[in-house]
């Protein structure tokens, strides 16, 4: 029997995303068993670890819509040797960025004050709440991103291809059928 090789440490998170990319990641199904032979998880919705420690690979779903997203992203970048943006929102802002042509104050006003049926509405200002950013941004506008897996969400096969290419020490390549923006 071969000596066990050191497992690569992987962290994942969803910022301004819907967890759809994480769901698609889980869609690799029984290949998860193969994957956990090769990797162990650090911070991730799968482990409930709250802060990212030193990792080989960090996977970021979602863009940046508030200050906390930026803090988490910077923590990932500081700790991960390879950072991967997964899904449309991390790559170009995606659905949350549809608010970008409206002013933030107008949106908060509409949602918490003016909308029909609201009684005594007020804009939440609890100090625990992260401040929203003026605009939603893709993550490569704030930190260096090493690889991108586009898609909404990317297919399980696309995610598997990138991860297995990386684990094999190759440049990830998707090609027709796996590269999708929709």
């Amino acid at each position: 029997m071969n000596a066990p090789t050191k497992k690569l440490r992987v962290a994942t998170t969803s910022l301004a995303g819907c967890f759809g990319c994480h769901m698609s990641f889980l869609d690799i199904d029984e290949r998860l068993l193969e994957l956990v032979q090769l990797v162990e998880f650090d911070r991730s919705p799968l482990t409930d670890i709250k802060h990212c420690g030193p990792c080989d690979i960090g996977i970021i779903e979602g863009g940046l819509c508030n200050a906390e997203n930026v803090h988490v992203l910077r923590e990932f970048r500081a700790n991960c040797k390879i950072l991967i943006a997964i899904g449309a929102c991390a790559i170009n802002g995606g659905l949350p960025a549809q608010r970008n042509h409206l002013s933030l104050s107008a949106i908060l006003e509409e949602v918490y004050h003016a909308q029909h049926g609201l009684v005594d509405g007020f804009i939440p200002n609890d100090p625990e709440l992260p401040l929203p950013l003026d605009k939603v941004h893709p993550i490569h506008e704030v930190v260096k991103v090493d690889y991108f897996i586009p898609g909404c969400p990317p297919s399980a096969d696309a995610i598997w291809k990138v991860l297995t290419d990386l684990l094999a020490g190759k440049e990830p390549e998707l090609g027709h059928g796996l590269i999708h923006y929709d």
Binding site: P138, H176, Y181
Partner: peptide, 22 residues
Amino acid sequence: LQATAYQLNMMSPHFDQFFPDR
């Protein structure tokens, strides 16, 4: 546009988004 970007392996927009109002 999308198909040509697939063809040329465009994995990210690389630049900062303009987010114009149209």
